[in-house]
Write a protein that binds this DNA or RNA. Structure first.
Length: 567
RNA sequence: GCCCCCAUAGCUCAGCUGGAUAGAGCAGCGGACUUCUAAUCCGCAGGUCCCAGGUUCGAAUCCUGGUGGGGGUGCCA
């Protein structure tokens, strides 16, 4: 939208509307909308500019719309078929075939860069996206899966819109929970019962089996070895899910002294805070004045026992990220951490950070639901699968992937806004995987690939003499033009689900075109092949930004198990 | 008690920095397979956008107050 680099056909249209408004001698009180109306009868694009100008011009909106229509007609020339005034003062613009053909030419000319923002464009930021960061005391479960899908897609989209993105996983390899893991592993190694507050999952036994000396080893050492093995498993799970990180950041390292006897990064963060007078001693503990930045109470950094709190680690970690030169920090946290936001924001400000530079996104819970028929009544009931690492009962990322596949899992987890709790019906995802919208989108992509394999003409976005575009063709061109803004919007709002919606709508728009407009053998085959090819490219790009594959072939037999052959 | 998130079709959810007749998928009903792959398409039905006020030309959207659900609220991590 505000990309000064490449102006798209829609940008040009918007500029023409603004110039027309200026020609009337007034500037709109806010930026006019230029949107594709839901109804075809409302034109290709509609603007509310006249309603925004009415006040300044002291004229009824519909009168202003009439004058604006004349001015826009002058600006657009042959590109404008007609403009209609509607409702309270909307101006509905009907654009000509020539405009659409030129727009498609632009899309094709942009190639791989279509919709992308160049890295040297203004507004580029250095962004650190920290996500998943699940404790290495068990496998990644469903909550972590949502976090992984969301963070990965967000990182991909932010990169696409021109930012320098660094992906990071914060490993909580420090503190009492690690000891607990060690104790649990050791107990298993000895064939003893796991402590009541220990970790009960079967993976604990697996870890124990992989550590020969676990039974009699030093607890601290066993703990660290167990953590190392867990991290390895977590990495493998995420990698299989298509999620990779640039940095696995150890919490433990924050507490270790720096090179040449320099203070630890935790101590360094304490020093930074102390210099600014943000800390104080009370009853033997070190406190941070988070209340000065809106927190409800001050927080302890160092207990009277001398131990550092988790909060101290997190502050040191964020100070470290600041010192690494990022202009923006985005953390994706699980819902169970949301009570922690206020104090983290406060701490970030206490360190000297600007309030808006740290974004904390809370990933609401995913409830895994399974259906079961009641044996007595036969009525179907849904039950929530409980997720607790301690109890060893949860649905893991690995299980989710093996049940419904990477593509469907990512689609499901990304299709909904991160701040709403969601139900994921495993039975539905399993039994109806072929009905899943993700397959619909992939099928559209594969179908285009098939058509283009069959077509023998060279795609060329030129409309043959005497041929008029079908409404479905114009709609598809317009849908393609909406790609860049859709990615920018999804990235800017940190809302990957908006891109999911876009991709689904594009597939639907294509399918309507496919229904209405034969390609192979048609008089306009070259144009339609060009249009289909551009659609294929945008679908593939959009799916890639979501971490979902774009197969060139799909076969019904593979429906239940979308394996490598289908990808 | 206080803080955060949510409430839209039978179900799961989009739409939320105000725009025209509130959408999608699934489920339901009725149709279409000599195909550019029917993993599809067409049609029908389905709604007090939780409630009550307010802001204005216009509110699912913004504001206030409620109701209901979820989560958080430790010198735990």
């Amino acid at each position: 939208m505000d990309d000064a680099h490449a102006s798209t056909p829609v940008d040009d249209l918007r500029a023409a509307v603004l110039r027309a408004a200026a020609a009337l001698g007034a500037t709109p009180k806010s930026a006019p909308t230029l949107e594709r109306p839901k109804q075809a009868s409302h034109g290709d694009y509609a603007t509310n500019a006249a309603m925004l100008l009415a006040g300044a011009l002291k004229a009824p909106p519909r009168d202003v719309a009439a004058r604006l229509a004349d001015a826009i007609a002058v600006e657009l020339g042959d590109d404008l078929d007609r403009a209609e005034i509607a409702g309270p003062g909307f101006l509905n613009l009907f654009l000509g075939d020539g405009w659409h053909a030129r727009a498609l030419t632009d899309v094709l000319a942009a190639g791989d860069d279509f919709g992308r923002v160049a890295p040297d464009a203004p507004g580029r930021e250095r962004i650190n996206v920290e996500f998943v960061s699940a404790n290495p005391t068990g496998p990644v479960h469903v909550g972590g899966s949502r976090n992984a899908a969301h963070g990965d897609a967000l990182a991909r989209m932010l990169t696409f819109v021109g930012h320098d993105v660094h992906r990071e996983y914060y490993v909580n390899d420090f503190g009492s929970q690690i000891v607990k893991l060690g104790e649990s592993v050791q107990a298993r190694a000895r064939g003893e019962a796991i402590p009541e507050d220990g970790y009960q999952g079967a993976y604990v036994q697996e870890i124990a089996d992989q550590l020969p000396g676990a039974a009699d080893g030093d607890l601290a050492e066993v703990s660290q070895q167990a953590v190392a093995l867990m991290i390895k498993r977590v990495k493998a799970s995420l990698s299989a899910f298509g999620v990779e990180f640039d940095t696995w950041f150890s919490e433990k390292s924050l507490h270790e002294p720096g090179p040449d006897g320099a203070p630890s990064r935790v101590q360094h963060a304490f020093d930074v805070l102390a210099e600014q007078g943000r800390t104080y001693r009370h009853e033997g503990a070190l406190w941070l004045r988070t209340t000065e930045f809106g927190d409800e109470k001050d927080r302890v950094l160092e207990r009277s026992s001398g131990e550092h709190t988790y909060f101290a680690s997190d502050i040191a970690y964020h100070q470290d990220k600041r010192e690494r030169g990022y202009t923006r920090l985005i953390d994706l946290w699980g819902a169970d951490h949301h009570g922690y936001m206020q104090r983290m924001h406060a701490a970030y400000e206490a360190l000297g950070g600007a309030p808006g530079d740290l974004e904390l996104l809370i990933m609401q819970f995913v409830h895994i639901v399974e259906r079961a028929a009641d044996e007595e009544t036969g009525a179907e009931e849904t039950t929530r699968v409980k997720m607790s690492k301690r109890a060893g009962e949860f649905v893991t990322l690995d299980e989710l992937v093996s049940e419904i596949g990477v593509d469907a899992a990512r689609w499901f987890l990304l299709a909904r806004s991160h701040d709403t709790t969601m139900d994921l019906d495993l039975d539905l995802a399993r039994s109806e995987s072929a009905e899943n919208p993700v397959y619909y989108v992939q099928y559209a992509h594969a179908r285009i690939a098939s058509i283009l394999r069959r077509s023998e003409v060279t795609p060329d976005p030129v409309i043959p003499e005497g041929v008029a575009l079908h409404a479905s063709e114009r709609a598809l061109v317009q849908a393609l033009l909406a790609f860049g803004p859709a990615v920018a919007d999804a990235a800017g709002r940190r809302a990957p689900h908006r891109l999911v919606t876009y991709v689904l709508e594009l597939a639907q728009t294509f399918t309507a075109f496919y229904r209405d407009c034969p390609i192979v053998g048609d008089e306009a085959e070259a144009f339609r092949a060009a249009l289909a090819g551009a659609t294929q490219h945008v679908l593939a790009t959009g799916l890639d930004l979501l971490g979902i594959s774009a197969p060139v072939e799909m076969h019904r037999e593979d429906a239940a198990v979308p394996g490598p052959a289908a990808r």
